[in-house]
């Protein structure tokens, strides 16, 4: 049992490292994980004077917005890239569950993106001398872990969906801005038409943002974080089912290209 767990951990670790090594040379990573948060923070910081608690909310929104872009373009593109590299068949028909391999790669992409986003955001905060309130650092850390898990699971799900549609690149572009707006990351959800206000509830990042907004005012409200965790689990279950269905369909239809 221990050996199986160690082997599973090794598979995840190896897949994670392989994905991260591949990301070092990908320009998209710089655009979504460095340029985007830096630009958004610089614009917001320059247009109005911010109180520390308001800055926390802004930083949270910027980080989560960049996180969504990164999820779509990096973790969400794992299987699409596998197909273009000609490595898809080997990755999903190995000795291990394809979900385990995809989990490792998606986690690798998410960790890399989050690290870049946090580093670039921190650099802007220091350079612009923004004052940020962090009243509950441990809860903030918990929120960050949920963001990591959520980005990984959402990346896996998007990756599978993009694989099934075969038009992943077009869907990647199409999904970015609607979620920025409908997810309540760039504008408050109550600014949306009433009939669209259910959409943010489906996005885990929206609930993490709600949680951070509460934290910045000194209140620890566990419900939004719990909802984010529940949504993350739902994404994960859906991704595993979707990947299994996609691989089975690929074997039936002959669409798992080997090279």
């Amino acid at each position: 049992m221990t050996d199986r767990l160690l082997t599973a951990a090794w598979v995840v670790w190896t897949a994670l490292r392989a994905e991260q090594r591949g990301m070092r040379t990908r320009p998209t990573v710089v655009v979504v994980s460095v340029v985007q948060p830096v630009a958004l923070l610089a614009v917001v910081a320059g247009t109005r004077s911010l109180t520390p608690d308001r800055t926390s909310v802004v930083v949270s929104a910027v980080v989560l917005t960049a996180m969504w872009s990164a999820t779509v373009w990096t973790a969400g593109g794992v299987l699409r890239r596998e197909r273009s590299y000609g490595t898809l068949a080997r990755s999903v028909t190995s000795q291990f569950s394809p979900s385990l391999v995809l989990f490792g790669r998606s986690l690798g992409a998410t960790l890399y993106s989050v690290a870049c986003i946090l580093a670039s955001s921190a650099a802007v905060i220091v350079l612009l001398r923004l004052r940020v309130a962090v009243p509950h650092p441990l809860w903030l850390l918990a929120a960050l872990l949920v963001v990591l898990a959520s980005g990984t699971a959402l990346g896996m799900l998007l990756s599978c969906l993009f694989l099934v549609t075969r038009h992943g690149l077009a869907w990647s572009s199409a999904l970015i801005y609607p979620v920025f707006i409908l997810g309540g990351l760039l504008i408050p959800p109550d600014a949306l038409p009433e009939w669209l206000r259910w959409v943010p509830a489906l996005l885990s990042l929206h609930w993490v943002h709600e949680f951070v907004v509460g934290l910045s005012s000194g209140a620890v409200r566990a419900t939004p974080l719990a909802v984010a965790v529940a949504l993350t689990m739902a994404y994960l279950v859906a991704a595993v089912g979707c990947l299994r269905a996609a691989v089975d369909a690929g074997r039936r239809r002959g669409t798992l290209e080997l090279v």
Binding site: A18, R21, G22, R26, Y85, G86, V259
Partner: peptide
């Protein structure tokens, strides 16, 4: 064939 690998690795 030319494909089947991660070029950056």
């Amino acid at each position: 064939g030319d494909r089947g690998f991660y070029g950056a690795l």
